[in-house]
Amino acid sequence: MIQIGIVVFRETLEVAVVAALLLAATRGIPRRGPWFLIGLAGGGAGAGIVALFAEAITEALAGRGQDLFNATVLSLTVVMVAWTIAWMRTHGAMLAKEAKSTGDRIREGQAPLYLLAITVGVAVMRDGSELVVFLSALGLSGQVTAAGIMGGFATGVIAGTIVGALIYFGILRAGIKSIFQIAAILLAMLGAGLAAQAAGFLISAGWLPPLIDPIWNTSAILPDESGIGQTAHALFGYISQPSAIQVIVYVAVLAAICWLGFRSPAVSAAKRPHPAE
Protein backbone atom coordinates (compact mmCIF):
# COMPACT_ATOMS: atom_id res chain seq x y z
CA MET A 1 0.00 0.00 0.00
CA ILE A 2 2.88 2.34 0.81
CA GLN A 3 4.40 1.57 -2.61
CA ILE A 4 1.13 2.51 -4.30
CA GLY A 5 0.96 5.64 -2.19
CA ILE A 6 4.45 6.71 -3.31
CA VAL A 7 3.60 6.29 -7.00
CA VAL A 8 0.33 8.19 -6.54
CA PHE A 9 2.10 10.94 -4.58
CA ARG A 10 4.69 11.45 -7.30
CA GLU A 11 2.05 11.79 -10.00
CA THR A 12 0.01 14.10 -7.77
CA LEU A 13 2.93 16.41 -6.99
CA GLU A 14 2.90 18.21 -10.33
CA VAL A 15 -0.85 18.78 -10.14
CA ALA A 16 -0.46 20.03 -6.57
CA VAL A 17 2.16 22.62 -7.56
CA VAL A 18 0.13 23.87 -10.54
CA ALA A 19 -3.06 24.04 -8.48
CA ALA A 20 -1.42 25.79 -5.51
CA LEU A 21 0.17 28.49 -7.68
CA LEU A 22 -2.98 29.12 -9.71
CA LEU A 23 -5.15 29.23 -6.61
CA ALA A 24 -2.79 31.78 -5.08
CA ALA A 25 -2.86 33.76 -8.34
CA THR A 26 -6.65 33.84 -8.45
CA ARG A 27 -7.05 34.67 -4.80
CA GLY A 28 -9.89 37.07 -4.17
CA ILE A 29 -11.93 36.12 -7.21
CA PRO A 30 -15.38 34.88 -6.20
CA ARG A 31 -16.51 31.39 -7.28
CA ARG A 32 -13.06 30.08 -8.02
CA GLY A 33 -13.68 27.09 -5.71
CA PRO A 34 -16.39 25.56 -7.95
CA TRP A 35 -14.30 26.24 -11.07
CA PHE A 36 -11.35 24.51 -9.45
CA LEU A 37 -13.51 21.48 -8.67
CA ILE A 38 -14.86 21.47 -12.24
CA GLY A 39 -11.26 21.38 -13.45
CA LEU A 40 -10.40 18.48 -11.12
CA ALA A 41 -13.50 16.50 -12.12
CA GLY A 42 -13.05 17.20 -15.83
CA GLY A 43 -9.39 16.22 -15.62
CA GLY A 44 -10.32 13.02 -13.80
CA ALA A 45 -12.83 12.10 -16.51
CA GLY A 46 -10.24 12.99 -19.16
CA ALA A 47 -7.66 10.79 -17.44
CA GLY A 48 -10.04 7.84 -17.62
CA ILE A 49 -10.65 8.42 -21.34
CA VAL A 50 -6.92 8.82 -22.10
CA ALA A 51 -6.18 5.62 -20.15
CA LEU A 52 -8.82 3.76 -22.20
CA PHE A 53 -6.97 4.75 -25.35
CA ALA A 54 -3.52 4.22 -23.82
CA GLU A 55 -2.72 1.43 -26.24
CA ALA A 56 -3.75 3.45 -29.29
CA ILE A 57 -1.77 6.50 -28.09
CA THR A 58 1.32 4.39 -27.44
CA GLU A 59 1.22 2.76 -30.86
CA ALA A 60 0.46 5.98 -32.71
CA LEU A 61 3.19 7.59 -34.80
CA ALA A 62 5.53 4.61 -34.67
CA GLY A 63 5.75 4.47 -30.89
CA ARG A 64 6.20 8.21 -30.49
CA GLY A 65 2.55 8.81 -29.61
CA GLN A 66 3.11 9.02 -25.86
CA ASP A 67 6.02 11.44 -26.13
CA LEU A 68 4.06 13.69 -28.46
CA PHE A 69 0.94 13.48 -26.30
CA ASN A 70 2.98 14.52 -23.26
CA ALA A 71 4.74 17.30 -25.16
CA THR A 72 1.40 18.63 -26.44
CA VAL A 73 -0.29 18.56 -23.05
CA LEU A 74 2.72 20.24 -21.38
CA SER A 75 2.88 22.94 -24.07
CA LEU A 76 -0.82 23.58 -23.60
CA THR A 77 -0.21 24.02 -19.88
CA VAL A 78 2.61 26.49 -20.61
CA VAL A 79 0.26 28.57 -22.79
CA MET A 80 -2.37 28.57 -20.02
CA VAL A 81 0.19 29.62 -17.43
CA ALA A 82 1.48 32.43 -19.68
CA TRP A 83 -2.10 33.57 -20.27
CA THR A 84 -2.82 33.59 -16.54
CA ILE A 85 0.27 35.70 -15.88
CA ALA A 86 -0.67 38.11 -18.65
CA TRP A 87 -4.08 38.46 -17.04
CA MET A 88 -2.57 38.94 -13.59
CA ARG A 89 -0.49 41.85 -14.85
CA THR A 90 -3.52 43.87 -15.87
CA HIS A 91 -6.18 42.75 -13.43
CA GLY A 92 -4.60 40.77 -10.64
CA ALA A 93 -2.96 43.65 -8.85
CA MET A 94 -6.24 45.51 -8.72
CA LEU A 95 -8.06 42.52 -7.33
CA ALA A 96 -5.39 42.27 -4.68
CA LYS A 97 -6.21 45.73 -3.45
CA GLU A 98 -9.77 44.49 -2.96
CA ALA A 99 -11.06 47.89 -3.91
CA LYS A 100 -13.56 46.60 -6.43
CA SER A 101 -17.22 45.80 -6.09
CA THR A 102 -18.15 42.13 -6.19
CA GLY A 103 -19.71 42.54 -9.64
CA ASP A 104 -16.51 43.96 -11.07
CA ARG A 105 -14.48 41.23 -9.49
CA ILE A 106 -16.63 38.48 -10.94
CA ARG A 107 -16.53 40.05 -14.40
CA GLU A 108 -12.79 40.58 -14.32
CA GLY A 109 -12.23 37.21 -12.73
CA GLN A 110 -14.05 35.14 -15.34
CA ALA A 111 -11.09 34.67 -17.67
CA PRO A 112 -8.66 33.29 -15.09
CA LEU A 113 -11.36 30.99 -13.75
CA TYR A 114 -11.70 29.26 -17.11
CA LEU A 115 -7.91 29.14 -17.25
CA LEU A 116 -7.72 27.75 -13.72
CA ALA A 117 -10.23 25.00 -14.53
CA ILE A 118 -8.63 24.09 -17.86
CA THR A 119 -5.03 24.15 -16.59
CA VAL A 120 -5.80 22.07 -13.52
CA GLY A 121 -7.91 19.74 -15.65
CA VAL A 122 -5.14 19.23 -18.20
CA ALA A 123 -2.58 18.56 -15.45
CA VAL A 124 -4.90 16.02 -13.80
CA MET A 125 -5.58 14.40 -17.17
CA ARG A 126 -1.88 13.89 -17.98
CA ASP A 127 -0.70 12.57 -14.64
CA GLY A 128 -4.02 10.92 -13.83
CA SER A 129 -4.08 8.84 -17.00
CA GLU A 130 -0.81 7.17 -15.95
CA LEU A 131 -2.30 6.49 -12.54
CA VAL A 132 -5.46 4.97 -14.04
CA VAL A 133 -3.32 2.61 -16.16
CA PHE A 134 -1.25 1.72 -13.09
CA LEU A 135 -4.10 1.26 -10.63
CA SER A 136 -6.47 -0.58 -12.97
CA ALA A 137 -3.73 -3.06 -13.88
CA LEU A 138 -3.03 -3.59 -10.18
CA GLY A 139 -6.72 -4.23 -9.59
CA LEU A 140 -7.01 -6.66 -12.51
CA SER A 141 -3.87 -8.54 -11.53
CA GLY A 142 -5.51 -9.46 -8.24
CA GLN A 143 -2.22 -9.07 -6.36
CA VAL A 144 -3.58 -6.20 -4.33
CA THR A 145 -7.00 -5.95 -2.74
CA ALA A 146 -9.38 -3.16 -3.67
CA ALA A 147 -8.97 -1.79 -0.15
CA GLY A 148 -5.20 -1.72 -0.58
CA ILE A 149 -5.51 0.21 -3.84
CA MET A 150 -7.99 2.68 -2.35
CA GLY A 151 -5.80 3.12 0.72
CA GLY A 152 -2.69 3.70 -1.37
CA PHE A 153 -4.49 6.12 -3.64
CA ALA A 154 -5.87 8.08 -0.67
CA THR A 155 -2.45 8.18 1.02
CA GLY A 156 -0.78 9.52 -2.14
CA VAL A 157 -3.46 12.10 -2.87
CA ILE A 158 -3.51 13.33 0.73
CA ALA A 159 0.29 13.65 0.76
CA GLY A 160 0.18 15.54 -2.54
CA THR A 161 -2.56 17.81 -1.24
CA ILE A 162 -0.51 18.59 1.88
CA VAL A 163 2.44 19.70 -0.29
CA GLY A 164 0.09 21.82 -2.40
CA ALA A 165 -1.42 23.36 0.73
CA LEU A 166 2.04 24.14 2.13
CA ILE A 167 2.98 25.99 -1.08
CA TYR A 168 -0.37 27.80 -1.19
CA PHE A 169 -0.33 28.95 2.42
CA GLY A 170 3.38 29.71 2.16
CA ILE A 171 2.62 32.19 -0.61
CA LEU A 172 -0.36 33.62 1.28
CA ARG A 173 1.83 34.26 4.30
CA ALA A 174 3.80 36.70 2.20
CA GLY A 175 1.03 39.22 2.67
CA ILE A 176 -1.57 40.61 0.33
CA LYS A 177 0.73 42.91 -1.64
CA SER A 178 3.33 40.29 -2.49
CA ILE A 179 1.03 37.32 -3.19
CA PHE A 180 0.53 38.14 -6.84
CA GLN A 181 4.16 38.89 -7.50
CA ILE A 182 5.39 35.74 -5.81
CA ALA A 183 2.72 33.63 -7.50
CA ALA A 184 3.58 35.19 -10.88
CA ILE A 185 7.33 34.57 -10.49
CA LEU A 186 6.77 30.97 -9.39
CA LEU A 187 4.28 30.43 -12.21
CA ALA A 188 6.77 31.85 -14.73
CA MET A 189 9.45 29.39 -13.57
CA LEU A 190 6.93 26.55 -13.53
CA GLY A 191 5.91 27.41 -17.09
CA ALA A 192 9.53 27.52 -18.26
CA GLY A 193 10.22 24.20 -16.52
CA LEU A 194 7.21 22.55 -18.17
CA ALA A 195 8.33 23.91 -21.55
CA ALA A 196 11.81 22.43 -21.04
CA GLN A 197 10.16 19.13 -20.09
CA ALA A 198 8.04 19.28 -23.27
CA ALA A 199 11.25 19.87 -25.25
CA GLY A 200 12.67 16.74 -23.57
CA PHE A 201 9.74 14.67 -24.85
CA LEU A 202 10.19 16.12 -28.35
CA ILE A 203 13.90 15.22 -28.28
CA SER A 204 12.95 11.73 -27.17
CA ALA A 205 10.50 11.50 -30.11
CA GLY A 206 13.28 12.67 -32.42
CA TRP A 207 11.43 15.83 -33.42
CA LEU A 208 13.88 18.26 -31.86
CA PRO A 209 17.69 18.18 -31.98
CA PRO A 210 19.19 18.13 -28.46
CA LEU A 211 22.18 20.22 -29.66
CA ILE A 212 24.78 19.85 -26.91
CA ASP A 213 23.63 16.97 -24.74
CA PRO A 214 24.04 17.36 -21.84
CA ILE A 215 25.19 20.98 -21.66
CA TRP A 216 26.11 20.54 -17.99
CA ASN A 217 25.90 17.93 -15.27
CA THR A 218 24.97 18.77 -11.70
CA SER A 219 23.85 15.26 -10.74
CA ALA A 220 26.74 15.00 -8.25
CA ILE A 221 25.58 18.14 -6.40
CA LEU A 222 21.82 17.71 -6.65
CA PRO A 223 20.65 14.32 -7.97
CA ASP A 224 17.27 14.30 -9.73
CA GLU A 225 16.08 11.37 -7.63
CA SER A 226 16.68 13.11 -4.28
CA GLY A 227 13.80 14.73 -2.43
CA ILE A 228 15.16 18.23 -3.00
CA GLY A 229 15.87 17.37 -6.65
CA GLN A 230 12.31 16.21 -7.19
CA THR A 231 10.86 19.26 -5.43
CA ALA A 232 13.10 21.58 -7.46
CA HIS A 233 11.98 19.75 -10.58
CA ALA A 234 8.29 20.18 -9.75
CA LEU A 235 8.73 23.86 -8.82
CA PHE A 236 11.39 25.19 -11.21
CA GLY A 237 11.82 22.38 -13.73
CA TYR A 238 15.23 21.37 -12.39
CA ILE A 239 17.04 18.75 -14.50
CA SER A 240 20.60 17.73 -13.56
CA GLN A 241 21.69 16.99 -17.12
CA PRO A 242 19.72 19.17 -19.53
CA SER A 243 20.40 19.37 -23.23
CA ALA A 244 21.26 22.76 -24.76
CA ILE A 245 17.89 23.02 -26.49
CA GLN A 246 16.09 22.54 -23.17
CA VAL A 247 18.09 25.39 -21.64
CA ILE A 248 17.33 27.58 -24.68
CA VAL A 249 13.61 26.75 -24.43
CA TYR A 250 13.64 27.38 -20.66
CA VAL A 251 15.27 30.81 -21.00
CA ALA A 252 13.14 31.80 -24.00
CA VAL A 253 9.85 30.83 -22.35
CA LEU A 254 10.86 32.44 -19.06
CA ALA A 255 11.74 35.65 -20.91
CA ALA A 256 8.49 35.58 -22.90
CA ILE A 257 6.35 34.97 -19.80
CA CYS A 258 8.17 37.65 -17.81
CA TRP A 259 7.63 40.08 -20.67
CA LEU A 260 3.92 39.22 -20.66
CA GLY A 261 3.64 39.51 -16.94
CA PHE A 262 6.04 42.22 -15.83
CA ARG A 263 6.43 44.77 -18.62
CA SER A 264 5.62 48.28 -17.49
CA PRO A 265 2.20 48.24 -15.85
CA ALA A 266 1.66 51.97 -16.44
CA VAL A 267 0.95 51.43 -20.14
CA SER A 268 -1.75 48.89 -19.47
CA ALA A 269 -3.48 51.03 -16.91
CA ALA A 270 -3.66 53.87 -19.43
CA LYS A 271 -5.05 51.54 -22.08
CA ARG A 272 -7.77 50.16 -19.92
CA PRO A 273 -11.08 51.87 -20.62
CA HIS A 274 -11.97 52.05 -16.96
CA PRO A 275 -13.25 55.36 -15.63
CA ALA A 276 -12.54 54.76 -11.97
CA GLU A 277 -8.76 54.78 -11.98
Binding site: A54, T58, Q66, E130, F134, A137, F201, S204, G206, Q241
Partner: peptide
Protein backbone atom coordinates in the same frame (compact mmCIF):
# COMPACT_ATOMS: atom_id res chain seq x y z
CA UNK B 1 0.98 -5.53 -15.98
CA UNK B 2 2.03 -2.12 -17.34
CA UNK B 3 5.29 -0.49 -16.29
CA UNK B 4 6.48 3.08 -16.57
CA UNK B 5 10.04 2.93 -17.83
CA UNK B 6 11.79 5.99 -16.51
CA UNK B 7 15.25 7.47 -16.32
CA UNK B 8 15.70 11.00 -15.06
CA UNK B 9 19.26 11.35 -16.39
CA UNK B 10 18.36 9.95 -19.79
CA UNK B 11 15.08 11.94 -19.83
CA UNK B 12 12.98 8.88 -20.55
CA UNK B 13 9.46 8.51 -19.22
CA UNK B 14 7.04 6.23 -20.96
CA UNK B 15 4.38 3.73 -19.96
CA UNK B 16 4.88 0.29 -21.52
CA UNK B 17 1.74 -1.81 -21.39
CA UNK B 18 1.86 -5.52 -20.59
CA UNK B 19 3.35 -7.61 -23.40
CA UNK B 20 4.51 -4.60 -25.40
CA UNK B 21 7.86 -3.06 -26.14
CA UNK B 22 9.17 0.45 -26.60
CA UNK B 23 12.22 1.92 -28.27
CA UNK B 24 14.25 4.82 -26.92
CA UNK B 25 17.06 6.75 -28.54
CA UNK B 26 19.87 7.36 -26.08
CA UNK B 27 22.52 10.03 -26.52
Amino acid sequence: TPEEFESKVLRIERVILGGQSATFNVR
